[in-house]
Design a protein around this nucleic acid. Sequence first.
DNA 1: ATCGAAATGTTACACTATAACAGAACCGTC
DNA 2: GACGGTTCTGTTATAGTGTAACATTTCGAT
Lengths: 137, 137
Amino acid sequence: MDAAESLCADRRLRLTPVRRRVLELLLAAPKAQGAYDVLSGLNRDAPPRQPPAAYRALDFLVAHGLAHRIERLNAYVACASPGSTHRPAFLICRACDRVAETPDLTPDRLKREADAQGFRIEATVVEAVGLCPACAP
Amino acid sequence: MDAAESLCADRRLRLTPVRRRVLELLLAAPKAQGAYDVLSGLNRDAPPRQPPAAYRALDFLVAHGLAHRIERLNAYVACASPGSTHRPAFLICRACDRVAETPDLTPDRLKREADAQGFRIEATVVEAVGLCPACAP
DNA sequence: ATCGAAATGTTACACTATAACAGAACCGTC
DNA sequence: GACGGTTCTGTTATAGTGTAACATTTCGAT
């Protein structure tokens, strides 16, 4: 949270109450949160909000590297190391739904393959589904 | 298509009319097809079908490696090399929406990282978004 | 011929996401 | 401190994606 604040200060980004609250919710959650999970978290506070409020805040957080979207789950997690630009990978446990973030692991071979095809990579999605240590039998 | 037939014959899988038709639609499509694209493709033929028909056929094709789901797009593509078990990666052009499949590129570093954490990988999603050669300016 | 399993039909609904426009808050400048 | 533009938020409505649940049919093997 502190990291997020200083990052926003540095970049002249506005960490508004809604955005801050959404980030807090993501940080507090043990697992990835859907947009509507976040929304109901917001609405546990004060005046009722609508879906766009949640999506806008989440878009902001993702755009600036404070959160990540897990495509496989249609859900979001707080970034584990905000500030550093990275292309993280995620380990998703199918039993407990917890998501672990690992540092940039975009495969060199993928880069090479893309180069060979003349494809210019702008973003990557690397997600693994399986069983985390706690859930492996 | 021939490959799909012999694969199903080998494994005693039933490539029913719906499933076959969905696979044909995916093979014929220049880009990834959403489930509802597939559904309307089905309904261009004969009796009207409902969403579950499309989803069931797609699930079957994906389960047996005849098609892949592109998480980033909520869409599906026919497999480029059915029969071989693989963990493909995809290059998604954000301009023309075409999807290129590349052979297994699951990063070794991801495997090692997962091992180090005791995480057992069962499936991977590796997708890159960017510009394909035709769309790069 | 019958039985069980697999596939499909059907209805209804849940979840995910965005368009479009109106209003409010912020921020710099004069 | 009033303006004017930009950014953010509120609000309504709707589009897009996916599944639960149960009935019916089809298939394949005994």
